[in-house]
Design a binder for these strands. Sequence first.
DNA 1: TAGATTGTTAATCGATTAACAATC
DNA 2: TAGATTGTTAATCGATTAACAATC
Lengths: 222, 222
Amino acid sequence: MQAKKSDRMPETLVRRLPAYYRQLSELEQEGLTEISSFKLAERMGLTDSQIRHDLNSFGGFGQRGLGYRVGMLKNSIGDIMDINREHSMVIVGAGRIGSAVANYPGFKEAGFVVTALFDIDPKLIGKKIGGIPVLDAKKLQKYLAETGTDIVVIATPASEAQQTLDHVGGTKIRGVWNFVPITLTPPEGVVVINVHLTDSLMALSFRMHEMDVINEGHPWTK
Amino acid sequence: MQAKKSDRMPETLVRRLPAYYRQLSELEQEGLTEISSFKLAERMGLTDSQIRHDLNSFGGFGQRGLGYRVGMLKNSIGDIMDINREHSMVIVGAGRIGSAVANYPGFKEAGFVVTALFDIDPKLIGKKIGGIPVLDAKKLQKYLAETGTDIVVIATPASEAQQTLDHVGGTKIRGVWNFVPITLTPPEGVVVINVHLTDSLMALSFRMHEMDVINEGHPWTK
DNA sequence: TAGATTGTTAATCGATTAACAATC
DNA sequence: TAGATTGTTAATCGATTAACAATC
């Protein structure tokens, strides 16, 4: 049965889940064991009502009169996001973007481990980048079939990105993390999350410009 | 006069602006000179109504009966985002995150040029990373005062990020691009855009897990 | 117990979509 | 002109906020 789109959680809520997780980790490190929706809201710049609403869309995690247990809630949200286990990733494209991702710290400590890079360039194959071996891109499908890889990171030239995604569609991979700044069409049953860093910079530029426009009292439309 | 929050464009719309720009660039490369809201919507997975609505919040760029001029619209959206000029950036923190950003291609071709990295480590000061000089972090404020730097990229250890942001608040810098996975409090008059890559990975993990949960027919709440 | 705080429903707000007159 | 497509207002949809009974 094809899942209805309405079964999926709203994007706005999904973006808040990692923020909850991060905040709860910080509270845990501070040694706090309980927190109310009101205090959590204050720290995160949300409303208490929204937090209770968000959490209750996954279940009742709190105790009336007391609030939420920090460790228990963190663990529950970890279960919901399925990050209380290790995920393995491969990076397709060992150029500058792929190298930057391979060298990026923080993924590993969050439990996302890069096991291999793939490239077509014979000068790169056999080398290591950030301690991770670069393999022949021809062997990608075989590698994915033989290993329990969870996530494919796309870091190819723009011209190759859709084709790479289509290839991945033929494997058991169901998650793709795309760094290439183009609009991709995901194969059936594959989740694609885009990281468009240049878009993020443009949004920053817009907000800076918007501030000027507002301060000058000029509306956007004449 | 303090700008009302309501003067600011909705976040959902701001996230679509770079996507419009990117799509129009692709159309331009394909040699198309006109496009209707209907065809643009089809390519982008939006509705024609939404596109007209979005564009009209900045002005009337189309011609009834004809559609939109690709080049003209791209240029107009570029003006709105203020990306029809070069932006200069400095990166604070020349560790692994800062290096990855400094080595990342694509920013430069989008007109965002990194002019310097800053670090406190004497072993790094004086070196170059991705062709960009690493300067002494003590000289950051002076550098910002003397140059026309537009954007500060924060890539410090988590413990230093808020302090770095507070320092920046005392300069003429009004845009900060933060790669550190903590919740920062922006000084008055400074726009902060966060790039939380680990959050993005967690959202991917959630969506993959959600697919399983839906397919198994298990609701999130019992 | 009394005070506190959740879980949950109803009210509000804002964003998206539909509709159509204006006009190229 | 007739057909096409915008600009713009009204209707709808969905997300956020408010309110309060349940209960720790």
